[in-house]
Simulated scan of single mutants.
Amino acid sequence: MRWTASDFERLEPRLFRAFLAVVRTGSFSAAAADASLTQGAISQQIAKLEERLNTQLFVRAGNRVLTTMAGRLLAEHAQAYMDHTSRFLEELNEEFESMRGFVGYAMPESCIHAPHFGWLLERRKSHPDLVLGIELKPSAAVMADVLGGVVDFGFVNRAVEHPNVLAYPFCAEQYVLVAAATRPERMAPESLDALLSQPMIVYPGMLDCLNLWIARHFGEVDPISAVSLRVNGQFNDIRGALAMVTGDLGLTVLPLHVAAPSIEQQSIRVLASGRPIQATQQIWIVRLRDRRMPARVKRVIRWFLEMHTELQPVPEEFLT
């Protein structure tokens, strides 16, 4: 006979479990135990399959049951169907459960003042069972948390070269040297020595920004540490450091998106040299290469990446 699509449409997938049990065991009685059914139920279900396909699926050979060619072909189809259904249900259940639970990530403090964080909170409103745990710390500490498995992923403002880490570009951040607007006579330093002679305000992560600014304006030099600075104030919060600059305690280097509102209000100003130089740095999303990510973590990362569609498509390995 010739089988058609309509023949398969008449098949009931619920019959496949009994059928595959007979194929595996070569016995109706063993199949009954394997499938947690009675031997009578096994026989009835096999008979239904044979009736609907109008072909014999098994032949008896003594105490054994042998699978016919038609039976072997059906077994391939039935097993593929069962495997596909199982994967589908796993993915479906994971998707429905994906937005329930904890997602932890770490980032430099400046990132929380960027518009991305507000956009994330808007997305999160549709998923009340999603719990966000966010750590604010300099890039080096973020990398340590990612490598230690403390967080699901992180944001860093430096290039990443580590065999155990996957990195993907997120956005660019620009840094500016700022001073109080009440001191219009203060000029941009023309040399590294002139910069180091100025009173400086320090905050967590400021040295990363400063060293990038120095590299862009004065060329590559050994990284500057806090002991090389004339520290006139320090604050463990970037907004506090901004307030110190506004109060004319000293200079600091800030991400432009953090300084922009105060620049517009004319409470601080950018100290720019005569050369049109922009100190910019790529921000990266980083994650452990071999860490399995729940669907909810993948979804949050996708939310971030969708904020910069010019970076698509995202390599699938980053989200597996």
Rank of each mutant, 00 (worst) to 15 (best):
D7E: 09
F16W: 02
R17P: 05
R17V: 15
F19H: 04
T25G: 01
S29R: 08
A31K: 00
S36H: 15
G40S: 12
I46E: 01
L53W: 04
R60E: 14
L66K: 11
A70W: 00
H77E: 14
A80W: 06
H84C: 10
E94R: 11
G104P: 05
P108I: 06
A114Y: 04
L120K: 05
L121G: 05
E122W: 13
R123N: 09
K125R: 15
L130N: 01
D145I: 05
G148E: 11
F155T: 02
F155H: 02
A159P: 13
N164Q: 10
L166F: 02
P169D: 06
A172G: 10
A180F: 01
E185S: 15
M187A: 15
D193P: 00
C209V: 11
I214P: 00
L229T: 01
L229P: 01
N232G: 14
Q234I: 05
F235R: 04
A243K: 07
D248V: 03
L254P: 02
P255V: 02
P255F: 03
H257F: 09
H257A: 02
E264K: 11
Q266N: 06
Q266M: 09
R269M: 08
V270L: 08
G274I: 12
Q282L: 11
W284P: 02
R291S: 11
V297N: 00
V297F: 02
V297C: 05
K298N: 08
F304Q: 01
H308R: 14
H308C: 07
Q312I: 10
Q312G: 15
P315N: 07
